[in-house]
Design a protein around this nucleic acid. Structure first.
Lengths: 146, 146
DNA sequence: TGAAATCCGACTTAAACGGTAGGAATTAAC
DNA sequence: GTTAATTCCTACCGTTTAAGTCGGATTTCA
C-alpha cells in the first residue's frame, strides 16, 4: 500500500514551493537539489501538478514554478489525489464502480470505505502551510539543541 | 494506493471462515465458489494466512480450513498486515528505516506517519465478528425490502 | 482404492514503476 | 542578437511486481 514516487515526490515539490512562496518563481533545478531528486523525473511530475491547476510556470531564464494559491489554501489531500487519483484501498469503492455482485453480500466493501474516509480526513485537514509551520518548528528545535 | 489482491482476497477468505466458524473445516473450494475467485490462487494466499498463524488446516477428504481463534478475537488489521506487511504510505516510516537525511528536514514524513496511524486505528478496531454482524444486518435489510 | 482435500514450487503474461535521453521552444540578461 | 537558463514534450528502457496458471505430490476419509 505504498504511495508511488509520483505522490511522494510531488508533495515534496509542493512543499518546497510553499517554503519559497512570495519570492517569485522557483526553478525546478533548485527543488531537485534541495530534495536530492532527479530533476528530469520531477519535470514529469510537476507537469501533472500544472495540469491539475496547482502550480503555474514561467518559462525562460529566471523562470520556474509557483503555487497558484496561498499555501494555507492548498491541502495535502488535493495534491495527493491530483497525482495518485482517489486514495481507495480497493477499486470497488470508487464512485464510478458498480456495486460488486460476485458475493452474496459484499461486506469487505464497508471496510474499504472506512479506510478511505479516514485517510481522506487526515490528508484534507493538513495544508501546505501546516507543513511550513512544521519546518520552522523542527528547525527551531534542532537549533535549540546545539 | 490500492491494496493488492493478496490483502483483499485474504480478508474475504477470513470472512468466509468466520461465517462458517463452529461448523468444522471449510474447504477452500467452497470459499472460492462463494466469492467467485480462483481456487488455485486462493491456495497461495491462504498459505500465508496459515504461516502467519491465523488459520489451521485439516488435510485429506472432508478437510479444509478453520480460524485459529474466535472471530471476535481476530482483527482486520492483523489479517491485512499479515498479508501486506505494515500499511505505510512510504517506506521511510517503517521501524527499520533510518531517518532520511536527504532533505534539510523531512516534513513529509510527519504526514505519512499520520496516515499510517489513522489506517491502523480503523483496521485494528474492526474484528471478523463485526463483519459477520454486518452480514446479518445487510441480509435482514435486504429481505425486509422484498 | 478412489475421491477430496491440502501442499508445493515453477512458470507466465502484462502492467506499473522509476526513471533516462534528446531535443524543441521560450525568455531574461548581457 | 547571442547565450544561458529554463520549461515543455515525447519516446524509450530495464526491473520489479501483480495476478494468476499449471502440474503434480501428499494426506485422509469413506
Amino acid at each position: 500500500m505504498i504511495l508511488s514516487t509520483k505522490g511522494r515526490y510531488g508533495l515534496k515539490i509542493m512543499y518546497e514551493l510553499a517554503l519559497n512562496y512570495g519570492n517569485g518563481p522557483m526553478p525546478l533545478k533548485e527543488v531537485a537539489q534541495r530534495q536530492q531528486l532527479s530533476e528530469t523525473y520531477l519535470e514529469q511530475i510537476i507537469a501533472h501538478l500544472k495540469k491539475g491547476g496547482l502550480v503555474t510556470s514561467i518559462r525562460g531564464a529566471q523562470g520556474g514554478y509557483e503555487l497558484i494559491r496561498k499555501p494555507e489554501e492548498i491541502s495535502v489531500g488535493e495534491i495527493i489525489r491530483t497525482l495518485e487519483g482517489p486514495l481507495a484501498p480497493a477499486e470497488c469503492v470508487l464512485d464510478d464502480e458498480p456495486e460488486c455482485t460476485k458475493a452474496e453480500y459484499c461486506v469487505t466493501r464497508l471496510i474499504w470505505e472506512k479506510i478511505m474516509e479516514s485517510i481522506n480526513n487526515v490528508i484534507d485537514s493538513i495544508t501546505l502551510n501546516d507543513m511550513v509551520d512544521d519546518y520552522y518548528k523542527l528547525k527551531q528545535k534542532k537549533e535549540g539543541e546545539k
